[in-house]
């Protein structure tokens, strides 16, 4: 009796927490059957490559949302760090220095966000909206408003080489999912993040250092956005000041699709991975079907609405 009750609750738990994975699998099968060329190795790699930027940033966005905050600045961070990397490489001739300074530039944006939100008590939405504008502007200033071509071919390896027949950025994405999955599930930092999102006051009273945790979350977010920006610059062989516009909403959409609660406190890495893949899959399939970009916006928006509605239905069931 007791045993069957726990199995039953386990099944229910699985359903409640992983329903998006079932949806993903069904979508994947349907697209494979009905969309020509979808289920080919070439297209799978293309699909994965197309979600690298969103995916890498979704890792840390998961933490930001999980702690109950937003980060809208990631799109500008991507552009800013890409430009920084390009400028530094051209100035010093050192690829390593360029990569490191690009990533550090991202971390710097994140640190400003984290400090303003945690220590100064500013609203996260407004703060990151402000830094979004500031660093988009910085990207334009640094580049004089033009794409910065990179002279060192060695830099392009980061985004365009292959390891075991799979593009390097995809490996980076996979490794980042593993690292942040472990951080979320198996470390105090991950649990504290969700506790803060669940009830900030209670988390503080339970001895969690809320401010430091938040600063770490946003700084990590900056670093990852910076990293994604450097990879993107490498793939495009240049730093683009208007790169990744609107990216923050794609990242947040992917997280929400993956069941991350906008109120904070609930997040799973499996959900986020699937959310990222669904976003990529939809664009990919629409491209294969030759649907014009304009319509793709409509479809993606509609998918997001449906996902949120499903989420609410699930919560009502609980």
């Amino acid at each position: 009796m007791n045993n069957s009750a726990t199995t039953q609750s386990k099944i229910k738990y699985l359903y409640n927490n992983y329903s998006i994975i079932f949806i993903f699998v069904i979508m994947f099968i349907l697209l494979s059957i009905f969309v020509p060329y979808f289920f080919t190795w070439r297209n799978m790699l293309g699909l994965a490559l197309s979600v690298v930027t969103i995916g890498i940033i979704a890792n840390t966005m998961m933490f930001a949302l999980g702690s109950g905050d937003f980060d809208l600045s990631v799109s500008s961070t991507v552009a800013f760090s890409g430009i920084t990397a390009a400028v530094v490489i051209n100035a010093t001739g050192s690829v390593i220095l360029g990569i490191v300074s690009g990533i550090l530039a991202g971390g710097f944006v994140g640190l400003i966000n984290g400090y303003s939100i945690a220590k100064l008590g500013l609203n996260a939405l407004i703060t990151t909206l402000a830094t979004q504008m500031i660093f988009r502007g910085m990207a334009f200033i640094l580049s004089n408003g033009r794409a910065v071509g990179i002279s060192k071919a060695g830099f392009f390896k980061l985004g365009n080489s292959m390891i075991f027949g799979i593009p390097t950025p995809i490996w980076i994405l996979i490794i980042s999912f593993i690292i942040f999955g472990i951080l979320l599930n198996n470390t105090v930092f991950g649990k504290n993040t969700l506790a803060i999102g669940g009830n900030t006051k209670a988390a503080e009273l339970a001895g969690i250092n809320v401010n430091i945790t938040k600063i770490i979350i946003f700084t990590a977010q900056g670093f990852m956005a910076g990293f994604a920006g450097v990879i993107l610059a490498s793939r495009m062989t240049s730093g683009q000041p208007n790169a990744a516009q609107g990216l923050e909403l794609d990242v947040i959409s992917a997280c929400v699709l993956g069941g991350v609660s906008l109120n904070g406190g609930i997040a799973t890495i499996s959900g986020v991975i699937v959310g990222v893949l669904i976003m990529g899959m939809i664009s990919n399939a629409l491209n294969l079907l030759n649907v014009a970009t304009f319509y793709q916006y409509v479809v993606r928006g509609a998918v997001l609405l449906i996902a949120i509605y499903l989420d609410i239905l699930k919560q009502r069931n609980q």
């Binding site: 504290n192 506790a195 669940g198 009830n199 209670a202 009273l205 339970a206 001895g207 609930i266």
Partner: peptide, 17 residues
């Protein structure tokens, strides 16, 4: 408001510190 984290499990609330 200040004690429990309502949307997390009993186990997580006990182990939080």
């Amino acid at each position: 408001e200040e004690g429990i984290i309502g949307i997390r499990s009993v186990s997580e609330n006990i182990n939080v510190s």
